[in-house]
Write a protein that binds this DNA or RNA. Structure first.
Lengths: 109, 109
DNA sequence: TCCCATGATTGCAATATTACGATAGAAGTT
DNA sequence: AACTTCTATCGTAATATTGCAATCATGGGA
């Protein structure tokens, strides 16, 4: 059916999953890493850096934007993308919390 | 084309992405959380806990197993799943490193 | 105004994912 | 052995994702 049954899961579970999903593609990881490395905001240099078509990059950027992790500002004819501080720390906190729940003491198998 | 061009990305990027992808579904988040909460290993109680068919749960478990984050031990007629300590900490370290790369000082937009 | 550059959007093809019923296999019980 | 229980796998349907060429939209220049 290809349709995720999100109704049966908690808000937190859906949120965590959508965050992970947004980062669950090497191109999007690469985009984030490139944005971070190029301290200033880079724009469509991503198309040159990564080996993907402009349309594809744009699509990945859209997905990253849709979960709020990046933010785009129009600068004349080009667009400047950068990390959204607030969302980034929110992600970091949620991931930390998720991974912190497991203590590794009770490994039974 | 539906086919991820993983050749053009680094090993690390692909690894990170596959980890994220594995956790990029609410059912798999729920499975992990349930396994952690039920300190001991639970088995097919997952089918009762979550509202998904047995075949579906089994499929998600397989995916989690394929990235190594959980581990299954046969116990008579049932199977006991639990977190794999080593892989868990590896994930934790990689995520920490990924999120730590951004300092939040240079927000330009 | 007419081009040019930059990005977003559209439309499409190929592949992947999600979910489940049905079935198969393995291990215990009677 | 026959039966039950638990889990994995197969097959299938519906939907999602990935990638790109082509096109649209916008904001500079000439």
């Amino acid at each position: 059916m290809g349709l995720t049954k999100s109704e049966i899961f908690s808000k937190e579970q859906n949120k965590l999953a959508s965050m992970m999903k947004a980062l669950g593609h090497p191109a999007r990881i690469a985009i984030i890493q490139t944005i971070i490395k190029a301290q200033a905001c880079i724009c469509g240099d991503l198309v040159d850096e990564l080996g993907l078509a402009q349309a594809t990059i744009s699509q990945h950027l859209k997905e990253l934007k849709s979960v709020g992790i990046i933010q785009g500002t129009i600068e004349g004819t080009s667009v400047c993308y950068c990390i959204d501080d607030k969302v980034w720390s929110q992600y970091q906190t949620m991931f930390d919390s998720f991974f912190g729940k497991y203590n590794s003491k009770a490994s039974c198998c």
